[in-house]
């Protein structure tokens, strides 16, 4: 299942291929000279607890709307050429991909800044929630650094 506003904003259960997304963003313009990616993956240790599984839930339509706003604002304020944002939902195992942000521009500097801003903004404004499964049970995470 995948819900999309445009092809550069996706919330989906299935995994994504980072190389495919980098190739896709290159097609946005022949002026692209720098591409920065941020890839978030499921880690085993959280607050001293061993995590066996993660589960992500989102508010359909609003989450996609927020990601679309982040993409547009990144393009406008950082002067990048294109941005792709993908977030997975559902059950995710340790080590699997969770979130991908790809920023492309003429030069490298603005892509680093746009990427860092976009992941922080995603965490701050996008209605997506993480549930961690540990040896003691399941818990909804309410504060992430």
């Amino acid at each position: 299942m995948s819900t999309t506003i445009d092809s550069n904003i996706r919330i989906q259960q299935e995994n994504f291929n980072v190389t495919d997304e980098i190739e896709a963003i290159k097609n946005a313009s022949k002026n692209i000279g720098g591409i920065t990616t941020f890839l978030g993956t499921g880690r085993e240790l959280s607050k001293g607890e061993n995590i066996s599984k993660l589960n992500f839930e989102h508010y359909p339509k609003m989450a996609e709307k927020k990601l679309a706003e982040i993409r547009l604002q990144a393009i406008k304020e950082y002067g990048i050429i294109e941005m792709i944002i993908i977030h997975r939902i559902g059950e995710i195992d340790i080590g699997e991909n969770i979130v991908l942000i790809v920023a492309a521009s003429e030069h490298r500097k603005e892509t680093f800044k746009a990427c860092e801003w976009a992941i922080a903004e995603l965490k701050r404004t996008t209605p997506i929630w993480k549930r961690e499964t540990t040896s003691t049970g399941e818990v909804w995470v309410q504060d992430t650094p």
Binding site: G40, T41, I98, V99, I119, T126, P127, I128, T144
Partner: peptide
């Protein structure tokens, strides 16, 4: 209306 607890997307 949606009641939205603190978000925890990303990593």
């Amino acid at each position: 209306i949606a009641i939205l607890p603190p978000f925890s997307g990303g990593i």
